[in-house]
Amino acid sequence: MINAEEGVFFLTGKDFTNAGAASSSLKGVLEKRGVPQDIIRRTAIAAFEAEMNVIIYAVAGMMKYRISNTEISVTIQDMGQGIPNIDLAMTEGYSTAPDYIREMGFGSGMGLPNIKKSTDHFVINSMVGEGTTLEFTIRLANGDKERA
């Protein structure tokens, strides 16, 4: 049994140079712990999509993670504009991203649906004008997501 561990990374809006650095660090933590590759990939993808959302839309935010023997849970909280209609934001292809974001290869409206697809449990809460909090969990033991 390895002890649970947790940590936090801070995210700065519009800092495209370091966009992805937090998810990359989280990936490194999981690799060091010897988490299976498939689970690392799903966690990294979900974390990166969430991190890019903060970089693109928010002023600042943070990514907190906790890894136990049974699951990885990640919370991404931002101070941003918030999402007026979460159902709409969860629709594949729906995006409010400006052109310069699309030119970077993001903002095609796949981010939130992809986080949902990559994780075992996903919750999003948002307040317009205040920010968005997103939490997801990926199971580590006896419950790898069924993908039949």
Partner: peptide, 27 residues
Amino acid sequence: LSFSVTNSLLVTGLTNAQVIRTAEMAA
């Protein structure tokens, strides 16, 4: 990030740092 698989190569016309990050996350 949504549709690629591991152990693959990516053909792209984008050359920014996010491409590298994307490849890293998607293995």
